[in-house]
Amino acid sequence: MFLTRFRVNTARREARLLLGSPRRMHGAVTMSFPDLPHHEGTGPRVLWRVDHNSPADTVLYLVSPVRPDLTHLVEQAGWPAADGPGWQTYDYGGFLADLADGDTWAFRLTANPVHSVRVKDGQPTKRTAHRTPRHQLGWLLKRQKDAGFAVLEKPAERRLLPEGDEHQVIVHGRHDHRFGKGEEKRGRDVTFTAVTYDGRLRVTDAAAFRATLTGGLGKAKAYGCGLMTLAPVR
């Protein structure tokens, strides 16, 4: 597995077009591989996420089973005349192998929190986005055990509210997306809601957690959701 970091040059028109369209960015990520790696079930797959840290610091993260080539992205949305390749790719396998139960990490995850609802009795259920931070957090907490981690709880003295403030996590950056699949795939538009979680966790099942980091969490993985990254707890 490989982890790649690419800084986006937001001053370029092509970069702004990519950042404004998950479909375009999906295509650009796909073109980073001569043959797109296949995946089965919940196995390792290509995952990506865009972090808008500031107007001058926008970063594309990419996790993949094989090493990508982002030359085309440098030409479209980077600094082609700068020294160096324009992106950094790291061997992710060693890091994953060292993960152990009980480890604590800061994490970031952009995900598509949804649930299934039935409008009328007898009708099939419909996938619907969670709209409030409370329900979006509930979506993550519901999946944490099977995903191999537990979001850390706050000490009682640090809780500002009597309920709904028990965990060390912030839910923010909601974006509602709607776009067509392209001329070659006419039909219903793609619609989904993406939110970002920043928090702290403890690894509870290292094997399941590795699967989460390499296979993603939730839906809309092709369009920038599902990738969790870790950083040391400060």
Score class of each variant (00 low, 15 high):
P37T: 03
S116R: 15
A222L: 04
V233S: 11
L161K: 12
G215A: 08
Q88F: 08
R143C: 01
V195M: 06
A100T: 13
A147K: 14
T58Q: 08
T125W: 07
F192N: 07
M25V: 03
H26Q: 14
R158H: 09
T204F: 03
W105I: 00
L160Q: 11
T110H: 04
H167Q: 11
S21Y: 03
R45P: 08
N9M: 04
A222S: 15
V8M: 11
M1H: 10
R7G: 04
K126E: 15
L161A: 14
V59N: 07
A82Q: 12
S64H: 04
L18F: 04
Q76M: 13
D189N: 14
L137K: 04
H172F: 11
G43M: 07
S21D: 05
H115K: 15
S64M: 01
V29I: 10
Y197K: 03
G216I: 05
D98W: 03
M25G: 05
G94R: 13
G216F: 07
A207N: 06
L230P: 06
Q76S: 13
G226Q: 08
D101P: 02
G27I: 02
L137I: 01
V66Q: 14
D98A: 15
Y90S: 14
K219V: 06
A82M: 11
F2Q: 13
R118V: 15
L230H: 05
G20N: 15
E40W: 11
R13Y: 11
